[in-house]
């Protein structure tokens, strides 16, 4: 399956979901005015990936900032990962947050309580 690779901008994260090298990552800032438009290609890619996923999918979320409009789109990504997990495939979400960034930690905990997928909180110590 062709990977999806999107370069980051000051308002949108870089995205790399690549089945060849097993990298699934969203990184940077996600604060666009129209998040639905931005995340549409990723969710479409995941819809296809869900048909024949890898035995294990590890997704790294390394966000510095995200707005409330992105929060729903990120949840949509996680719901697709949850569906893969439900279909008896291993899925793991690593939620990275910077030291002392309690807001980002809490945001990860919110998702963890909504999504039934193994969720790991990883503190980045500078």
């Amino acid at each position: 399956m062709e990977p999806i690779i999107i370069e980051g901008t000051p308002k949108t994260p870089s995205i790399k979901f690549d089945t060849q090298d097993g990298v699934f990552e969203i990184k940077g800032r996600s604060i666009p005015e129209n998040s639905v438009e931005f995340y549409k290609p990723l969710n479409e890619w995941l819809d296809q990936y869900m048909q024949t996923p890898l035995d294990k999918t590890v997704v790294n979320i390394r966000l510095e900032y995200f707005n409330t409009s992105s929060s729903k789109c990120i949840l949509d990504v996680f719901k697709r990962l949850e569906a893969i997990h439900r279909s008896k495939h291993d899925v793991e979400i690593n939620w990275f947050y910077e030291e002392d960034d309690e807001d980002m930690l809490e945001a990860g905990e919110d998702y963890d309580s909504i999504i039934k997928v193994p969720f790991k909180m990883i503190e980045i110590v500078e």
Partner: peptide
């Protein structure tokens, strides 16, 4: 916040009240 995030559909104007929350 979690309730709106999980149950409300996103519209062109975002999610009702999530920004204020």
């Amino acid at each position: 916040y979690k309730d709106i995030l999980n149950h409300q559909e996103i519209t062109e104007k975002g999610l009702g009240g999530l920004g204020l929350l």
